[in-house]
Nucleic acid binder design. Structure first.
Length: 424
RNA sequence: GGAGAAUUGGCAGAGUGGUCGAAUGCGGCAGUCUUGAAAACUGUUGAGGGUCACACCUCCGGGGGUUCGAAUCCCUCAUUCUCCGCCA
């Protein structure tokens, strides 16, 4: 959520940003928001004046009672009754206006960074980096879902029986490879200075609002209506919410956290081959990195996160590319996002394995995540997060790119974690 | 799940209807003293709205109510602690 004051004072910047995102009714939206804000402040001022008067009268009444001047006190009481009526109405107006403003603010996405390319679809994303050799596979190479079956390491039908589509069962070496990847990623992240945390897999409504899943995107999350809890779609939610309603000291920056969690996504729409096998799941594992930064350092931090993810993909020796998401494809809350995609040779397509974003103060504003700056004033911090990494598509990439006629080789870096060198 | 007690500023802790955004202590910050540090002393130190800046307004776990007036009384929800029950 953007700060109203920012919108008020930087209307042109906001409109330009929204245009880049192809927000249709931007002009109207911003105008309405500014109007609601003005309305809110006008009512607030009026109400404050009445409250001030009524506070003063109440004090006077107190004095009069003490000095025994009951009659005078009674007269003042009459007056306050009228004020009370007025203030009641105004309070209600104020609440309505504040809600209206709030709802408008929820509709306005983050302003994209200058370097976010214009564009409307994923085709307009800008490839900023590409690395790694795309292997030439042997005759009869298979997509990962076939490999999974052939070596009996992932059972989609079994998961379907137990839960439903999109809930695979990992078996034998497949299960062990999962665990190896989790440990490997966590070790890489902690070695890079990220503190490991284990967090709840369910979150309350306030947390959902804090990171921007609510309102609006509740359809993407599994919801337990009885206790009003949501299964997390990503560790970003519980980890970032650690810092909800927190005022940091400037010397506490940077804050770097990493967490492994399963992630749960309802993913309403699905279509054909794109969701086959591991490509899109309702439950999947992911290791996440989250950073809380001083505003002046957040882009530096973003670069460092990108480089970190790079180093993992290099070590796994997977062919990958980095995309700078365009205005039409970037998430609602992000100011700048880099997607990492691994080339899945047998499917002949790129698979998104990581998304690294700077949210600037957008999340922090909702979270009320602030720090005391050197002038002693509270200021919103910047939040960032990224996957390092999402397991299923990495697994898909590994299975497909490392397949040989003799079996699937395990990358060197993972062998110590797996305890085996080949799946056959 | 049952019974009882509690929830106040960074922390500890007073306040049980009027001038209380809140005593006091600790901590933090600034200064005095000191070659420097410590100690001592002095001052300062919650958040949000509002304003050019003040004024002013709101917030004592959340929500609602009583009252001219609520941290203080009532209702409700949440959380924590103690005891009992159940249980990885």
């Amino acid at each position: 959520m953007l700060q109203v004051a920012f919108i008020r004072e930087n209307k042109e910047t906001v409109l330009k940003g929204l245009a880049k995102r192809n927000v249709k009714n931007a002009e109207e939206l911003v105008a309405k928001t500014i109007l609601a804000d003005e309305g809110r402040r006008a009512i607030q001022t009026e109400l404050d004046a009445i409250l001030a008067e009524s506070n003063k009268l109440s004090k006077d009444i107190g004095q009069l009672f003490k000095s025994g001047e009951r009659q005078k006190a009674e007269i003042l009481k009459q007056k306050t009754v009228q004020l009370k009526e007025k203030s009641k109405d105004l309070t209600e107006n104020l609440q309505n206006k504040a809600t209206e403003l709030q709802e408008l603010l929820y509709l306005i996405p983050n302003i994209p960074n200058e370097i976010v390319p214009a564009g409307s679809t994923e085709d307009d994303n800008e490839t900023t980096f590409e690395e790694g050799e795309i292997p030439t596979l042997h005759e009869g190479a298979l997509p990962h879902w076939e490999l999974a079956k052939k070596y009996d390491i992932i059972d989609f039908e079994l998961g379907n029986k137990i839960a439903g589509a999109g809930f695979p069962v990992y078996k034998g070496k497949g299960a062990k490879l999962q665990r190896a990847l989790i440990n490997y990623f966590l070790d890489k992240n902690t070695a890079a200075g990220y503190d490991e945390v284990q967090v709840p897999l369910m979150v309350n409504e306030a947390s959902g609002f804090g990171t921007g899943q609510l309102p609006d995107k509740e359809g993407q999350m599994y919801h337990d209506a009885q206790d009003n809890l949501y299964l997390i779609p990503t560790a970003e939610v519980p980890v970032t919410n650690i810092f909800r309603d927190v005022i940091l000291k400037e010397d506490e920056f940077p804050i770097c956290k990493t967490a492994y969690t399963p992630c749960f996504r309802r993913e309403a729409g699905s279509y054909g081959a794109h969701v086959r096998g591991l490509n899109r799941l309702h439950q999947f594992d992911k290791v996440e990195i989250v950073r809380i930064e001083h505003p002046s350092k957040s882009y530096e931090a973003l670069d460092s996160m990108v480089n970190h993810v790079k180093s993992i993909l290099q070590e796994l020796n997977l062919p990958y590319r980095i995309l700078r998401l365009c205005g039409g494809d970037i998430g609602f809350t992000a100011a700048l996002t880099y997607d990492f995609e691994v080339f899945s040779t047998a499917q002949d397509r790129w698979l998104e394995v990581s998304s690294v974003s700077n949210f600037e103060a957008f999340q922090a504003n909702r979270l009320k995540l602030r720090f005391k700056n050197n002038e002693g004033k509270s200021e919103l911090a910047h939040t960032l997060n990224g996957s390092s990494l999402a397991l299923p598509r990495i697994l898909a990439g590994l299975l497909e790119n490392y397949q040989t006629p003799d079996g699937i080789k395990i990358p060197k870096a993972l062998v110590p974690y797996c305890g085996f060198e080949i799946i056959n």
